[in-house]
Design a protein around this nucleic acid. Structure first.
Lengths: 153, 153
DNA sequence: CTTGACCTTAGATTAAACTCCAAGGTTTAT
DNA sequence: ATAAACCTTGGAGTTTAATCTAAGGTCAAG
């Protein structure tokens, strides 16, 4: 059993943040001490680490509680529903990985374009590296237009 | 040359957002029309797409302008500095990809743990899937503790 | 038996990133 | 030449995710 401050410092967040997460239904301590102190179990800590990982990776707290509600509520869901929601999130994550990889490529060509020596960077064609990377992308996107299409009036 | 609304709808954002980015030094139009309308070039659009990709991937606008300032200012930097900053960002991106991959693994084991049938999800051991994934992680983190260590007083 | 580090609550404040509004100027199409 | 659909500015309002404040209760050590 951890008290709020212990769990917080363990996970490098503030106690306030844990109270905030509790208020917003993301993580409640499994129990309270006689005097009302929050007591968190190892499972609670586990759940918190899941939340923090999800957050680090760009999910909003709302998206995270959606994900977690699946688990809280699982008796009231059909297996197929649960699998559907999870697979849906998984798709988002996969898309995010693809975007990140693309981004890493941009940065890599930026780095490669730069000699790394002591001279002025004026002649490092960084912008060109970015642009060429971007051109590859838009060329790809012209043929297969992903995402929700918006009206162009 | 695009006007603000054109560029905005092209990139699925609001004109307001472009004005906001301009105010915060991320992207200014290359020119203005006689009557003061913002006029964006293809390079501006390129830069915008870079910003949006960076944002999608979890960088803050501050981090993004740091990255972009490298390019704006390149005559005043040594090649080595530029390469250093870019490689630093590249490390962050790589770390983010690792986290995302871990997260995708969590979700995948969640999905695998679920039969996907029409019955109640009560017996899908989703929490257990998350926990076991998390235990693997914390086991790994105990030996090699990455990140800034905080005082535990 | 008090000091200091913890904890409780409710509510105010902050920061980032938009998002909207009002009042007016510009373009284009009919 | 006038309506619709753009654009301009400055400034106010919103949302998300904390973070801080005030006023007080708890607990282990000396």
């Amino acid at each position: 059993m951890y008290r709020i401050g212990e769990l917080a410092s363990q996970c490098d967040i503030k106690a306030d943040t844990l109270r905030f997460y509790e208020k917003h239904g993301l993580l409640a301590p499994s129990s309270r001490s006689g005097s009302g102190y929050r007591l968190y179990t190892k499972d609670d800590a586990s759940r918190l680490r899941f939340i923090l990982r999800a957050k680090a990776v760009g999910f909003t707290l709302n998206e995270i509680s959606e994900l977690l509600s699946i688990e809280l509520d699982k008796a009231n869901w059909a297996c197929a529903d649960v699998k559907g929601m999870v697979d849906n999130k998984l798709e988002q994550v996969t898309a995010k990985i693809a975007e990140l990889t693309q981004f890493a490529n941009s940065l890599q060509s930026l780095s490669n374009a730069c000699c790394g020596g002591p001279d002025s960077a004026e002649h490092c064609s960084i912008l060109e590296a970015l642009e060429s990377e971007d051109k590859q992308l838009s060329a790809k996107n012209e043929t297969s237009h992903k995402g929700h299409h918006h009206a162009v009036k």
